[in-house]
């Protein structure tokens, strides 16, 4: 007989780890956050990664990452053929809001970048360019708002639920937001160095600030969890001393935050810029992904009594 039978298994009343959100969900959160942050960095601050077929690489990568995240979300559904139903409850469900924004973003940004597509020196779709008409600003605004929501909605899904105390805090969507921008800017720094171009000081300062904010948010989250007795404290304990401590302390704290901060300083000094910048690009992705993975893995349901 299967485990879970009352004849062979005691339903012990103790904190139970959540078992439904795994690596695919962490990849979904990571990909969508990074993709949207790349788009917003390009749109708001003009931060470019380069060009491919006449298209902005930041836009192309952003679109691809959001699409990959969406595909992971759909493939993880119990009934993938009913994915469209996830658009039906935006008044209550953050997943529904996020799914609508995913589609809006993918649709609008595809429409925006395709006119720039250059094949053999020609732009076959150039006549569809948005130009400077008033409605293009409206559509840009909608796409930007969608991208912002795509970054934070997985965090809001987690934080709105009262079931898992470690997740039930505004610090989760804030971490998702700042980690996404830190890793997007980290990627831009790496691409800039790889193309042999000078890295603007503002980018390095911005990256250092974003990493500091991420560090503070992570520390606040842990302190907050330790102050709340019970399951949230146990979740924090598992991050610092339990099974997931190597991933969190080594992957998020050291490799994802402290080391990139040091490397940004190295790059700002003009020493080994290429190595430092590429390392920042890679390490910030590792830290961003593992921060989400670790938060999911230490989610614990308190006992009902």
């Amino acid at each position: 007989m299967r485990s879970g039978s009352p004849l062979t298994f005691s339903f012990r009343l103790e904190p139970k780890p959540q078992t439904f959100w795994h690596v695919p969900h962490a990849v979904w959160f990571f990909a969508m956050g990074l993709g949207s942050a790349l788009y917003l960095n390009r749109l708001l601050f003009g931060i470019e990664l380069g060009q491919v077929l006449g298209l902005s690489l930041a836009h192309v990568l952003g679109l691809a990452l959001v699409a990959v995240g969406g595909l992971i979300l759909i493939s993880d559904l119990g009934r993938p053929e009913r994915f469209w139903r996830a658009l039906m409850n935006p008044r209550h469900s953050w997943i529904s809001v996020g799914a609508i924004c995913d589609f809006l973003f993918l649709f609008l940004d595809s429409l925006y970048i395709l006119p720039d597509l250059t094949l053999q020196g020609r732009q076959p779709l150039a006549s569809f360019a948005w130009g400077d008409a008033w409605w293009s600003f409206v559509l840009h605004g909608i796409a930007a708002a969608s991208a912002f929501i795509i970054i934070v909605y997985p965090g809001l899904v987690l934080s709105f639920s009262p079931s898992i105390p470690f997740w039930n805090t505004t610090l989760i969507p804030l971490q998702f937001l700042f980690f996404a921008f830190a890793s997007a800017l980290g990627m831009a720094v790496a691409f800039q160095a790889a193309r042999g171009q000078a890295i603007p000081t503002t980018w390095l300062v911005g990256e250092a600030l974003l990493l500091c904010v991420c560090l503070l948010l992570v520390v606040f989250h842990l302190i907050n969890a330790y102050q709340v007795r019970g399951t949230a404290r146990e979740s924090a304990r598992r991050l610092l001393r339990g099974q997931w401590a190597p991933h969190f302390l080594g992957g998020v704290f050291v490799a994802g935050l402290v080391l990139p901060l040091a490397l940004v300083a190295v790059a700002a000094n003009g020493d080994a810029v290429l190595m430092a910048a590429v390392s920042v690009g890679v390490l910030t992705q590792v830290g961003n992904f593992l921060s989400k993975f670790c938060v999911l893995k230490v989610g614990l349901y308190p006992p009902i009594f």
Partner: peptide, 8 residues
Amino acid sequence: MTACPTGA
């Protein structure tokens, strides 16, 4: 009920 994206 709040979390359900489809209103199921």
